[in-house]
């Protein structure tokens, strides 16, 4: 019995020693070695396989050579990105938990959902990585040959638009279109579907009249003549989309307010140290100049569009303000 107790005590002691030394060593390493000293977790606010997830995985493949540590992509889907956001702001501010942000999670979601348990500016921006062009499409047999035709038709009576969910970027963008062109309120009936693909499907099936979408979700249908583009948003000012040289941009058509693009970037919890911000700002900039990365994301329909930590922060604020304004005016509320 005595021997038994001794053994168990010894085991306890050894375990304690092991735990203590691991914990002690671990914290020692973190305190001394320059950031980053261990792999970095990148939260993805959506499930595996979405466009933001793919963007995060493209980043995780390339950026380790500029950051110096591997990136672990972790999907935390739920509540249009709010779940991951919550996880991020509750994480330690040591720069080892970051988040792949997108227009949906940090631009439109806080603009339409006033009941989020955090504020739209409650994070640290590290760098914008990419934007994606958008396009307004109708059916090929539609009588509307130009944006002007469509707007005139909408003035006479409501026309139906498919949007990938209440308060999403296409929804708010179309409301901006209604507002800036002086159309009467409600002249576009917004019918919420579940995904970008579903909204194109609805247009092709004739269940709606018009669709505003990310270019990549409609490009093959445009090229096959199954839908027709009336206007597009180009990430490069003054230049048409290389994929659609015949389609005018909204700016050309005199509606620069519709210069709405999707975007993604990397965020950190509020209050991360300055060296983390510097490290990541540089790494993101170098990555956006990396040829391999550029090719990968261009295949997915995005365009490299670097913004530094501060500029990205101002950009996100501007996006929030723009969408907040239109959501308030039209009365779009999610999560009340």
């Amino acid at each position: 019995m005595g021997a038994f107790r001794w053994t168990s005590n010894r085991w306890l002691f050894c375990t304690w020693l092991a735990v203590a030394s691991v914990v002690g060593l671990g914290s020692g390493v973190e305190a001394q070695a320059p950031y980053p000293a261990k792999p970095i977790t990148l939260l993805v606010p959506f499930g595996a396989g979405g466009t933001t997830d793919l963007a995060a995985r493209a980043l995780a493949q390339v950026i380790p050579q500029y950051v110096g540590q591997p990136i672990i992509v972790v999907n935390k889907p739920g509540s249009s990105g709010a779940v991951a956001w919550q996880v991020m702001i509750e994480s330690p501010t040591d720069g080892y938990t970051l988040m792949m942000a997108a227009i949906g999670t940090h631009g439109t979601l806080p603009a339409v959902n006033p009941n989020l348990p955090f504020k739209h500016n409650q994070f640290t921006t590290l760098g914008r990585t990419q934007v994606n062009p958008t396009v307004l499409v109708v059916r090929p047999d539609s009588p509307w040959k130009s944006l002007k035709d469509l707007l005139e038709a909408a003035r006479k009576g409501p026309i139906k638009a498919s949007v990938p969910g209440l308060g999403t970027m296409p929804h708010l963008a179309l409301e901006i279109l209604v507002k800036t062109t002086g159309l009467p309120k409600g002249s576009l009936t917004m019918i919420p579907y579940k995904s970008d693909a579903e909204t194109v499907t609805a247009l092709m099936g004739g269940h709606v009249d018009v669709n505003y979408n990310n270019l990549i979700s409609a490009i093959s249908q445009i090229r096959a003549g199954q839908v027709r583009a009336l206007a597009a948003v180009s990430p490069v000012p003054g230049k048409r989309l290389s994929d659609l040289p015949d389609v005018p941009t909204f700016t050309e058509l005199g509606i620069p307010q519709m210069n709405v693009v999707g975007w993604r970037g990397v965020l950190a919890p509020p209050g991360v140290p300055a060296d983390v911000v510097d490290k990541w700002e540089t790494a993101v900039r170098k990555m956006t100049e990396d040829r391999g990365w550029r090719e990968t994301i261009q295949k997915l329909g995005d365009e490299p569009a670097f913004l530094g930590a501060r500029a990205f922060g101002e950009f996100v604020e501007g996006e929030y303000q723009r969408y907040r304004a239109v959501a308030t005016e039209v009365g779009i509320v999610v999560g009340r």
């Binding site: 977790t41 672990i72 992509v73």
Partner: peptide, 11 residues
């Protein structure tokens, strides 16, 4: 499969 299973207080 890289599922982020909970690590717990002990790590």
């Amino acid at each position: 499969l890289q599922v982020p299973l909970p690590r717990g207080l002990l790590g």
